[in-house]
């Protein structure tokens, strides 16, 4: 089933409101899941379940959270993702806006990277 951008945003917003207990007006496209909406690690599992149900899709964990890249010494040096690692991240996550992260790609900052718009872009790529 093909969804419009508006339909995707509405469903993603509902999932985030429900999973994180945030208000509708807090879920803006630019809001980061961790920093702005207060998502904790356990919430991501909940968000995945809700998105899978809403869009009837399967979400493998490594697609949204590429821990295998971020913990691989080939792609990480001194706590920062290498150029090769960034390329791998872009290949794995073409739907994510990594431009800010590229400026100072500290692994510890990766957790606060994803925005509501990134989630919408990911779902759009999976569901349509």
């Amino acid at each position: 089933m093909a969804y419009t951008d508006e339909e995707i945003f509405q469903k993603v917003r509902e999932a985030l409101e429900d999973a994180l207990g945030v208000d509708e007006d807090e879920v803006t496209p630019d809001a980061t899941l961790v920093g702005d909406l207060g998502a904790e690690s356990i919430d991501f599992l909940d968000i995945v379940f809700k998105l899978e149900k809403s869009f009837d899709i399967q979400i493998p964990r490594e697609e949204l959270w590429p821990e295998d890249i971020l913990t691989n010494s080939t792609y990480v040096d001194d706590g920062k993702v290498t150029a090769q690692g960034l390329e791998e991240l872009k290949r794995r996550m073409p739907w994510a806006d990594l431009s800010n992260f590229e400026e100072n790609p500290r692994v510890q900052d990766f957790g606060n990277l994803l925005t509501v718009q990134d989630m919408c872009s990911y779902v759009k790529a999976k569901a349509n």
Binding site: L45, V48, F49, E52, K53, I59, R61
Partner: peptide
């Protein structure tokens, strides 16, 4: 049992 993932279930 509604759904499972490698890290959990609902």
């Amino acid at each position: 049992l509604e759904n499972t993932q490698s890290e959990g279930a609902i």
